[in-house]
């Protein structure tokens, strides 16, 4: 029972990070039809923001805020320099552009900062444990679940109750119609990128607090999983992205925890087979968007 409870916390913690990254991908995709594979590099840049702030002697809390800001700035810069020029291009051209941006940034990180991982040390009290009855929980996984829930709640409020949010949802439905109504599309797209950057920044904070280092490839693997999560949830569906993120995280952790040793090497294959099975059952994803886009 204790083991199951602890593994559930682990699963929700990992699922939360995937959910945030998947949501960042989905927000941008729903509006400009771009699957942004450079999303991982936004996360990595946030991580380097934290690292450099600590190196320059900022207190840890300030470093986290700088990390978040760095991710937002990177997302906006990416939109302005690479993706705005490609607005309206077909999905494949946009995809290839995002791969190019991703590769360029990885090489810049490698040569400009370091090819090796760099350490990030937060105060020891941040990575302690606490007891509930007989069960010990880690502070970082718990905080990461709370932060994920808070971020998702904040985003839901923003999308449902603010003008910018409504404009974004409207843009996701029909960006041409939005333009005709006199809303500045560039601004809506920029806000969408800024939000996806913020989510990547929060993911970077949780990731570095859990993993203790940043390297040029840091964002690549989680974003790959997040991409699978958005497809599983339904491409372009925000709720689907969150659900997909949690689903992948939970299946991954449970497979790691409970698969017998002989099957352990097939863990990733089993997780992906489960995703394929889910897509065969619901080809448009678990929670399809109103205007469906199959992968």
């Amino acid at each position: 029972m204790e083991l199951l409870l602890q593994q559930t916390v682990n699963a929700l913690s990992l699922g939360g990070v995937y959910a945030m990254l998947a949501l960042g991908l989905a927000i941008v995709f729903s509006i400009v039809r771009l699957i942004n594979f450079a999303h991982g590099e936004i996360m990595t840049f946030g991580g380097y923001g934290i690292f450099l702030s600590l190196v320059f002697g900022f207190p840890p809390v300030a470093a986290l805020i700088i990390g978040l800001a760095a991710a937002v700035v990177m997302a906006l810069a990416m939109e302005r320099t690479a993706f705005r020029a490609m607005r309206g291009a077909d999905v494949v051209s946009l995809l290839i552009t995002s791969f190019a941006v991703s590769e360029i940034l990885k090489v810049l990180f490698q040569n400009g900062i370091s090819a090796r991982p760099v350490p990030i040390t937060f105060p020891a009290s941040w990575s302690g444990t606490y007891q509930v009855g007989d069960i010990t929980f880690g502070v970082v996984p718990t905080v990461s679940i709370l932060v994920t829930l808070a971020a998702l709640a904040g985003l839901t409020f923003l999308l449902r109750r603010t003008v910018s949010g409504m404009a974004m949802r409207a843009a996701a439905e029909d960006i041409e119609m939005l333009r005709l109504l006199g809303i500045r599309a560039n601004r809506v797209v920029a806000v969408a990128f800024a939000l996806s950057g913020l989510l990547a920044g929060i993911a970077a904070v949780i990731w570095t607090a859990q993993r203790g280092s940043v390297d040029p490839m840091m964002g690549f693997f989680p974003v790959l999983k997040a991409f699978i999560a958005t497809v599983l949830g339904g491409l372009g569906s925000l709720g689907g992205a969150v659900l997909g993120g949690f689903a992948i995280g939970i299946v991954e952790v449970l497979a790691q925890a409970f698969l017998p040793e002989t099957l352990a090497p097939y863990r990733d294959a089993i997780v992906l087979a489960a995703v394929i099975a889910a897509l065969l059952w619901r080809p448009d994803g678990l929670l399809p968007a109103a205007k469906t886009s199959r992968s």
Binding site: E2, L3, Q6, Q7, V9, N10, A11, S13, L14, V17, R116, P117, T136, G138, P141, Q210, R211, S213, D215, M217, M218, F221, P222, K225, G249, E252, V253, L254, Q256, A257
Partner: peptide
């Protein structure tokens, strides 16, 4: 490049008897 080690850690923590040394050749990150 496994994203998360918490499941492994939880299994080690639940081991009975507990190990008195953990050995890995894992590299960064």
């Amino acid at each position: 490049n496994q994203p998360d080690f918490s499941a492994i850690v939880t299994n080690i923590k639940a081991a009975d008897p507990a190990p008195d040394v953990i050995v890995t050749w894992a590299w960064e990150p």
